[in-house]
Every structure is written in C-alpha cells, then in structure tokens.
C-alpha cells in the first residue's frame, strides 16, 4: 500500500474541495473495495478523503414523488432491511442480500457499491498486464482465464464485468444517482452511470473525478410481488455472480404490462436492453415469450472460451427469472433451491 494523506471533511463542499485540490485523491466510505485494492497496489491514491463524517448522507427519506432517496452513506445492511425498502423495493433488498456477507454489507455503503471495481483476475494482479489498471499494457484475459468475464459490450481492450448485485437491481428499477461537484448537483440515470470499456477501460463510470455521490433515488414503486433477483455463482453464498438477473414485471392477469430486466456478471455495466423489454408488453407471460426476450437481450453476445457457457446460462437464467417474477415467487436469498 502506498503512502497517502487523509482528510476528514465535515461537509460535502469541503469534500469536493479536497479532491479538486489533490489530483490523485480518492473518496473513502466503507472502504471495503478501496482498501482491498490499495493493498494490491491497484489503487494508489496519494490523498484519501474520508466521507464517513459527512452529515445528511446516512438517511433514507421519501422523495415526495412517491419514491425513496437512499443516502450515499447508508450501509448496504441498513438499506436491505429498511422496512420501506423491503415493502416497496423488495427487488433491491433481495439483490443487496445476495451480495457479499453480513460483515461486508455492514461496512459497505450505497455510494461505494456503485463504484465497485471489477473482479477481473488480471486487474487485481499488478504483476500482469491490464488495460484497465494500466492503460496500454494489453488484456491477457481475452486469451487467458476468463471464466468470470463479460460476454456483452466488450471491447478489444477489456472484457471485465461489473461485479455489483445492487446495481443490477437499481438498473432494473431505473434509479437515479444524485451527485455533486464543483459545478453543483446533477442527476445521472442508472443506465448512464456505468459505461462500457470501449477504448477507455480505465474509466468505469461517467462520474467525474471531482464529483461525489449524494444519494440514490428510486422512482415510485410499481412492480408489487412480480420481481426476482436470481444469482448464479460457483458456491451458494459469498461469491460474485457468474450471471445474475433482476427482473420486475407489471402484470395484468396473465399479461405483461411492463417489464424490466437487467443482467449482472455479463458486462462492464448492468446490462439492459429496453427493446427486449418492449417485446413483452401486452404479451402473455410464458416460456415462449421469455425465450424470445432472452434471445434479444443476448443478441451479439460473444464468448472468449472460459466464459462462453455464460451465453447459454444467461439465456436460461433470464427465462427462469421472468418465470419467477411472473409467478410472484421471487428467489429467496436464504433457501438455495431455485424456484
């Protein structure tokens, strides 16, 4: 771990000032990913700005438009077990509980979870090349060990995935990220928050370096019981997703009124295809319709050998998740039988 100074600002403005005056600064909240990466010499900030004392970011409040505003410093645990979240956004609660462990969820924050970095083996190993860690050095994952890598939206420079479970649910729920910077506040829809690697894989999100996340806003809930978060992984808990699916349906009897489907573990960002969701509108819920949707979502998917199975797995997972959502039998994160 490299040497750094630390600041403990007492206000958002002060925090923003700290990062604007120190070019190689990083915010720290729960620290569950940043400290991890600093010990591997992957992140090497020279100045660390501790956000844990900022006032007003640790609460869950009504938005006034029927939605909820989750402060950036709210812990993953607090959000997952909040009665309003459980009641109105059970999909988010479920996705949070599918991720990590109680210890990590107690420390990890909502803002920090948005900024989790990839689990790519090469990104984590400073002795190997990696375009995301060190632009221009290459991507050994493409011809290497890529079991956990992306099948959608990859580039020749990077095939890493975004590892968060929470973000997959937020994408399906069309949450909005509220941020503040030197130019004031702005809102970034989830769909635009994370980016694809393209030729700048070192950049995970569209957040500017001097911006701070204030909150995540959830729109008015609309999916009732018709949702699920289905996560498939190499052991039954405490593992990152090979493929995960967040699905939410607005149903009218057997018919789908509105569908939201986001995939985790398959791309550099939570993967949503609005055109595929459109395909379900007005259709009877059923395997045939779901399969067509899966085809559309996975259009253009490309495997790299070790991860090629994810294409078929994702196809099956989409169908299962939509079946669970349509039936109103969301996947339990405790009972490991898949409904």
């Amino acid at each position: 771990m490299n040497r750094f100074s630390i600041a403990r600002p007492g206000s958002v403005a002060e925090a923003v000032r700290e990062v604007t005056t120190h070019p190689a600064a990083k915010f720290i909240a729960g620290g569950t990913n940043l400290v991890d990466l600093m010990k591997y010499d992957v992140e090497r900030p020279t100045h660390v700005v501790d956000l844990s004392r900022l006032p007003g970011l640790n609460t869950i409040e009504e938005t006034g438009e029927g939605g909820l505003r989750l402060g950036a410093l709210v812990s993953n645990t607090a959000a997952a077990y909040d009665e309003r979240v459980k009641e109105r956004y059970p999909l988010l609660s479920s996705a949070l509980l599918a991720g990590a462990t109680p210890q990590l969820r107690n420390a990890a924050t909502m803002g920090g979870n948005l900024l989790q970095r990839t689990r790519c083996y090469y990104f984590y190993d400073a002795a190997t090349p990696c375009n995301k860690r060190q632009p221009g050095t290459g991507c050994p994952a493409k011809d290497g060990v890529n079991r956990i890598h992306a099948i959608l939206g990859t580039s020749e420079h990077c095939i890493a995935t975004h590892p968060s479970d929470m973000c997959v649910a937020l994408a399906a729920l069309e949450a909005v990220v509220k941020v503040a910077g030197p130019q004031g506040e702005r809102s970034i829809p989830m769909a635009d928050f994370h980016r694809l690697p393209g030729n700048m894989p070192e950049k995970d999100t569209n957040l500017h370096g001097d911006e701070i996340i204030l909150a995540i806003e959830l729109p008015e809930p609309r999916f009732g019981k018709n949702h699920t978060y289905l996560k498939l992984r190499d052991r039954l808990s405490y593992a990152f997703a090979l493929v995960s699916v967040a699905a939410a349906l607005e149903m009218d009897g057997e018919k789908v009124v509105e569908a939201r489907i986001a995939l985790g573990g398959v791309a550099h960002k939570p993967w949503r295809v609005p055109e595929a969701e459109e395909m379900l509108r007005g259709k009877a819920a059923g395997r045939e319709a779901f399969s067509a949707v899966a085809d559309r979502i996975l259009q253009g998917a490309q495997g790299y050998g070790g991860n090629s199975f994810k294409i078929e797995l994702a196809h099956r997972a989409i169908i299962r998740a939509l079946s669970q959502a349509a039936a109103g039998t969301p996947q339990s994160q405790t009972d490991k039988r898949i409904q």
């Binding site: 083996y121 090469y122 190993d125 002795a127 190997t128 050994p140 011809d143 290497g144 060990v145 079991r147």
Partner: peptide, 11 residues
C-alpha cells in the same frame, strides 16, 4: 486456474 500464457495461477 492457470493462465498458461503467463504460466501463473490467476485466481
């Protein structure tokens, strides 16, 4: 999991 190109266990 070995990366045989690099001759290194990666995970």
């Amino acid at each position: 999991m070995p990366d045989h190109n690099l001759g290194r266990f990666m995970n």
